[in-house]
Each structure stands twice: as C-alpha cells, then as structure tokens.
Nucleic acid binder design. Structure first.
Lengths: 139, 139
DNA sequence: CTGGCTGCAAATCTTTTGCATCCTG
DNA sequence: CAGGATGCAAAAGATTTGCAGCCAG
C-alpha cells in the first residue's frame, strides 16, 4: 500500500490505526473486519470513520474496493494490478500475480474506451477440499 | 435462458412473468428492477417471490448471480460462459463473448481446484463519453 | 484558527425470514 | 390434497448520513 505521506490525508490516530491494519494485509477484509480489528485499540471507533477513511483512501488510490463478495464490499490495500482466486466454499480470496493479454477487438468493445480489467478465478481451496472447513455458502 | 420445461419448477403466474421478463434480457437487472417490471402486471408481487424465484432458478442453472455491482446483486439469464464489460460511469454491463486461455500454473493455484473464471473489463461507454449521461457514481 | 474528522444515532437500501393462506401438479 | 409458493410485514445486514463537538495542520 501507498505510504502515509503520499496519501496527503489528515492523519488522525484512528486513520493511522486503520492504515496499520491494512498495511501488508492480504485477507481482503470487509469494513466490518476492519472495524472489529481497529476497535480493539480504539473502543470508540465508529463505522462512519471506517467508511470515511476507506473512501478517502480509495480516492487517493490507497485501496481498491472489491465487488467479489455478494453480501459486502471487501477492500484490497494492494493497488498494483492483479487478479484474484476465490474459494466458492469459504469465500477466501487469494491474490494472483500473473499477467494476461486481454485485448478486446474493436468490434467487441461496443464503443467503450477500455481502462482496465480484472479476472476472478473460482475454485475450492485446500482446506475446504480436505476437511470441508467453513462452509459459509452452499451452492 | 433455459426453457420452462427443463427448469422443473412449479410454474405459477408470477414465476412465468419473471421468466418472461428475464428471457432475452441483456440488461443484467437487479432484484429491484425485476420487482418493478413484474409488479406492473402483478401488483401484489412481493420481493419474497422475486428472491425465491431467483434462488430457485439459480439452483437449476437458469440464472447467474453477478457480483459486479457493489451495492446490489445483478442477475444474468445468459448462463453460457462469457465475460462482462462494465461502464465505470453509469454501471451499464455488456456481455463479452470472447474466449481467453486463462490457465493458472500449478504454483499459482495455491492448492485450489480451479472450476471457472470470469473477466470484468472496465471502461467508459459511448453515452457517458459523449454526453456524460447517467453519472450515477463519481470516481 | 478552521476545515476536515470523529462518534453516535438514525436513516436508507438490499436481502432474508416467519407465517398464514393459496394453488399447482 | 399436500407440499411448495405467495404476500405481507418485520428483521437482519451493510452502508450512508446528519450533526454537534473535536483536533490536526
């Protein structure tokens, strides 16, 4: 994730706690995950502050909103272009650092100006395969 | 979309209305879109029935849930494998029928059994480019 | 100092659920 | 006729908002 300085945000203790939690975090946490974790240090932390901070971060390019999960947003502090591998059983999300050539021919663009892409790979993770851990969603 | 018979669902007038609305629909409507449209014909239609029917359809493979939109699920009656092109301004979603070779090398799979993939292309649609129509979400 | 940030609570939006009644197969 | 479907309303979650008071720059 981008460092504190480059973000040019007013740095409050709450924001620093959120930034510290997100730094090097590869769990793709939800707002609630962040709220729970940071509340341990700041019991007065509110959702408003979590969402405000995430939105401020997003606007500065410090975090990406993932729409991978149907029930809630997840947030990714890794803002380098990359893809994701999602366990369809437990919803765990793993980063995929592979580059693919995904050009769209002119006729397939429907007149859009293309600005990016994102691949979701679906699968079953080793834990769910072996022991049927955390079956959070049936299919 | 799959025909009525193959679905093996108990066919009520409400379900037929929902199936008719979804047939050949390429708008990727939300549950609310479906509710609003079908309510015109069945004023007593309820969200419970819309969600029940969509869930029944999904289990039979008659519809796919899209998690492309951060604020709500969208539903796609086109269940053939395909990808999507999303306007980052107005959130319009267009089908992309192109096949890509997206194999993941063993070391990149993190032990997952891969079962599928989905590409989201992001761009700006012609309408938003030319006239800044429907700016539903700022970035 | 002052504009932006925080925290609380209420509001909003989407989706789910309980339950009595209805109707398809 | 029986089991599944409907409709209504209430509940559950996630996210947003209004606002008074606070504090980083």
């Amino acid at each position: 994730m981008i460092g504190y300085r480059e973000l040019r945000l007013k740095l409050t203790p709450q924001r620093i706690a959120i930034l510290d939690y997100l730094k090097d975090n590869i769990e793709h946490p939800s707002a609630d995950d962040i709220y729970k974790a940071v509340s341990l240090k700041y019991p007065t932390m509110s959702f408003a502050t979590v969402y405000n901070t995430l939105e401020a971060l997003r606007k500065k390019g410090g975090v990406t909103e993932l729409t991978i999960d149907a029930t809630k947003k997840r947030f990714d502090p890794n803002t380098k272009p990359h893809h994701h591998l999602i366990c369809i059983e437990c919803r765990r999300i793993v980063d995929i650092d592979v580059t693919y050539d995904l050009t769209l021919s002119g006729e397939k663009k429907s007149g859009f100006d293309i600005v990016g892409n994102h691949i979701e790979f679906y699968g079953i993770c080793p834990e769910c395969k072996d022991h049927h851990h955390n079956p959070k969603k049936e299919n």
